[in-house]
Design a protein around this nucleic acid. Structure first.
Lengths: 257, 257
DNA sequence: CGATCTGTTGATATCCTTCAATTTTGGTGG
DNA sequence: CCACCAAAATTGAAGGATATCAACAGATCG
């Protein structure tokens, strides 16, 4: 659990420096970890959401099924991601969450989370920022699905995962863990498995990537970015603006008084 | 402004009943309205976001341009929508916001918004819920872009707009204001203008819709929903669960003391 | 009342899908 | 450690949905 709360901390620290107190509060939020096997549902469409959770280890995704059995993966969930922070306001989930591999999560009761956020303005701001970043990723994904070719979508997925794993301190910068079958990649990118296969082969032939056992080495990041037309700007990694930093400091001061 | 804050109030009231005090606080947040012509940018990619705003009248959209000049519309903004509530944490917008027609907005300074939310837990919850609903719409859109045919996407867009306009008290339930050119619809749905045109004609021939001057009558909502494979469930219109309501009431009580 | 934007139409091209094998991989039990 | 099995990856051929290109008609607006 120490390790995994580090992934969350590492991500949040890209935004604003957290105090030891913030970090401790965050750690104390998490209840005993729960484990799931690969390809198991953590939550199902229609369920009443019960808790938020931090993904500690493994990988999961949000997804929706269509009536004809096809699937759209909406979002990949990586270690350090906080999910469903405000889902207590919702009666029934509009999508499912399933694991891609053996995965463990740390549930967080909604009440406790709200209380800690009220007491720790800086942590609260970091979590808000994390949500903003998530929205930006959703937008990027929508551009990919709406306007990019198959090659662009695959390149985009590889780049996005690399940055996210970097931010969470899970990657060396050139290599990506991608524990997805080609059918799952297809579900994430709105393509067919066959076509994903062909694009990946083309990438390998062109020495853009190399892969073995669900690890991809991004051999030519430059070119991949150009193909996917992505930069890491949208991740808002450049930290918090000065005015916001001042506002957070004021909030902290007023709490201590 | 009275009218338009009604659109926001109407939307929020689908979630939880707001007190007169909440409503007043909301109204007092809004500064003097600003007007924009059609096809003008309200904010541009790369800009430092300065204020949140409520769209009072007209229609706008978030969009991203691609290098080759193509565009993806990410999201339509309707009267009553609150935008960029937490954008103060971001250095540079990753997308632009532009009007589709003559539009007016009421800017809201971020500091004031945060203060009012801290004082009005019920209003705060309603705004959080509104953000959750927005995320659900984004997911629905991703499913449409990733997995639906052109016909499905067009049907989905018409249905979504109908529900949203209904919620904001802007529609009679069978008719939709759609002040978009076919090229703009194409940008929203990841299609080409030509193909949008053909789908719309097919819909008209099949007596699914009728249109005149940017108003669409949805003649066969049943069938449109089936084609778009959409229901209004994802809008979470069924209100707030009991536990959450209790938590909100507690927060209000502790504020008054 | 002309210029320009929008909508419409037809012909052709292409990217991606579909279908149907076949091979390879990875996991499991003997 | 090997044999076996199911799942995943790969390949080829053919079809379909949507894009592209180009031209024209109709609407809208100064």
């Amino acid at each position: 659990m120490g390790l995994a709360s580090n992934a969350l901390l590492s991500r949040l620290s890209h935004f604003i420096r957290l105090s030891e107190g913030d970090a401790r509060a965050l750690r104390e939020l998490m209840s005993a970890p729960e484990s799931f096997a690969g390809h198991e549902d953590i939550a199902r469409e229609g369920d009443r959401p019960h808790v938020a959770f931090v993904l500690l280890d493994g990988m999961a995704c949000r997804y929706r099924m269509l009536l004809d059995g096809r699937r759209q993966i909406l979002d990949l969930i990586l270690p350090g991601d906080l999910c469903d922070a405000r889902a207590d306001l919702v009666r029934a989930a509009d999508h499912s969450i399933g694991t891609m591999m053996a995965t463990s999560i740390a549930p967080i009761p909604h009440g406790k989370l709200a209380a800690v956020r009220a007491l720790h303005p800086r942590l609260d701001a970091a979590l808000v920022w994390s949500a903003i970043e998530h929205e930006a990723m959703q937008r990027e994904r929508m551009v990919a699905l709406g306007r990019r070719t198959a090659r662009g979508r695959v390149a985009y997925l590889l780049c996005e995962l690399m940055w996210r794993q970097n931010c969470a301190g899970l990657s060396d910068g050139r290599t990506v863990a991608l524990p997805l079958t080609q059918a799952e990649i297809a579900d994430a990118l709105g393509l067919t498995p066959v076509h994903v296969n062909r694009v990946l082969q083309e990438f390998r032939r062109g020495r853009l990537v190399a892969s073995s056992r669900h690890r991809f080495a991004l051999l030519d990041l430059e070119r991949l970015q150009r193909i996917g037309e992505v930069s890491s700007d949208y991740l808002h990694l450049d930290g918090v603006p000065a005015e916001a930093r001042r506002a957070i400091a004021r909030a902290e001061a007023s709490h201590k008084s």
